[in-house]
Design a protein around this nucleic acid. Structure first.
Lengths: 159, 159
DNA sequence: GGGATATAATAAGCTTGCTTATGATTTCTG
DNA sequence: CAGAAATCATAAGCAAGCTTATTATATCCC
C-alpha cells in the first residue's frame, strides 16, 4: 500500500502546485499582480502594522524573498513602509487606499480559483484535505528544525 | 463550510509545497542533485529514449524549463542526449551508467522524505490525498485549456 | 560608557519556473 | 519541387524562491 504512495507523492505535489501557481498567476495578472504578491497583500490586509520580519516568519518565507515582493507592492502604491518610532531598523507595513478596490476583486478571484481547483471534492473532503496539508507542513517544519539523524521529538508535544 | 476552505486552500498549498521543496532540495543536495533534476532523472529512468518535447509534455512543464534541467544532468554525466536518426531536430534521452548508484540512493531518500511528510496520516488517507491531488491537477489542467468564460466541458468525458 | 552580540532589512548571485522569440529542421500543400 | 506552416530545441529576460554576506541599529554585559 505505502509503496504506491512512495512512488508519487513527492513529485505529484510539485506538479499540482506548479499548475495551480501558473493558473493563479495567469488569472491574477488581469489585475496586475502575481500570486506571491497577492499572498503578501492579503496578509497585510488582515494584520496591518507588522514588521517585515514578523510577516516573513508568519508566511514561512525568507526575509529577503519578502523584501522584493514588498518592493513591488510599494511600487504599485498598494502598501507602504513606515519607519518604527522606537527602532529605526524596523519598517512596518500598512495598506494604502489604492489597494481597496483591488482587494475586493481578489476576494472574488480567490473563491473562483478555489472552486475550480476543488471541483468534484465535497466540502467534508475539502476540509480534510486542507487539514492534511497543514499536518504535512507541520511535519516538514519539524523535520527541518530537527536535523536529520536525530530522534523525532516533535517539539515535546507529548511531553 | 466552503467559506473557510476559500480562505486558505490556495495559499496553504503554496506554503506546503514551498516547504516540501526546500526540504527535499536540502536532502537531495547531499547527492549533488536538486529535486527538479531528480524528477527528470527518475522519469528518464522509467522511459528511456523519450524526446525532450515528449518528456516536457508528460511532466507538464515548458520545454525550455526542461532544457536547462537536462543541461545539468548531462553536465554531471547522468544522462545523455542522442540525436534521432530520422529527425535531426530531435534529441532522445538515455541514462548513463554513472546514474545507477545515484538512482539507488535516491529511491531510499524518496521513501524517507515521503514517510516524513506523511507522518500521522494513515495509508488509506494518504491514498485519498494523492487521488485528490491528481483530481485537482486535472481540474486545473482543464481550466487552463478551456479559457475562462467557457462552459466547463471537461473533455467530453461523460459524453 | 563601550565593545561584543543580536536583529532588521537589504544585496548579490544561484535555481527553476514562466513568456516570448529564434534558428534549424521537417512536413504539408499547391 | 518550392514555399508555407509546424515542430524541436534553445535563447533572452523576468519572477520568486533560496543561501550567504553586508550595513545599520539595538541590546547586553562588563
Amino acid at each position: 500500500m505505502r509503496g504506491t504512495v512512495d512512488m508519487n507523492f513527492l513529485f505529484t505535489l510539485g506538479e499540482v502546485q506548479r499548475m495551480v501557481r501558473a493558473y493563479a498567476d495567469r488569472q491574477a495578472a488581469r489585475y496586475g499582480i502575481t500570486r506571491a504578491q497577492w499572498a503578501v497583500l492579503a496578509k497585510v490586509e488582515r494584520t496591518e502594522g507588522l514588521k517585515q520580519s514578523e510577516l516573513a516568519e508568519q508566511m514561512e518565507m525568507q526575509p529577503i524573498t519578502l523584501t522584493r515582493l514588498i518592493d513591488k507592492l510599494c511600487d504599485n502604491g498598494w502598501i507602504e513602509r513606515r519607519g518604527d518610532e522606537n527602532d529605526r531598523r524596523v519598517n512596518r507595513l500598512y495598506l494604502r487606499k489604492a489597494a481597496r478596490p483591488l482587494l475586493g476583486k481578489l476576494a472574488g478571484l480567490r473563491s473562483e480559483l478555489t472552486a475550480t481547483a476543488l471541483d468534484g471534492i465535497n466540502p467534508t473532503d475539502a476540509h480534510r484535505l486542507l487539514d492534511q496539508l497543514d499536518l504535512i507542513k507541520e511535519n516538514v517544519r519539524n523535520a527541518i528544525q530537527n536535523p536529520a539523524g536525530e530522534p523525532p521529538r516533535k517539539e515535546q508535544r507529548y511531553g
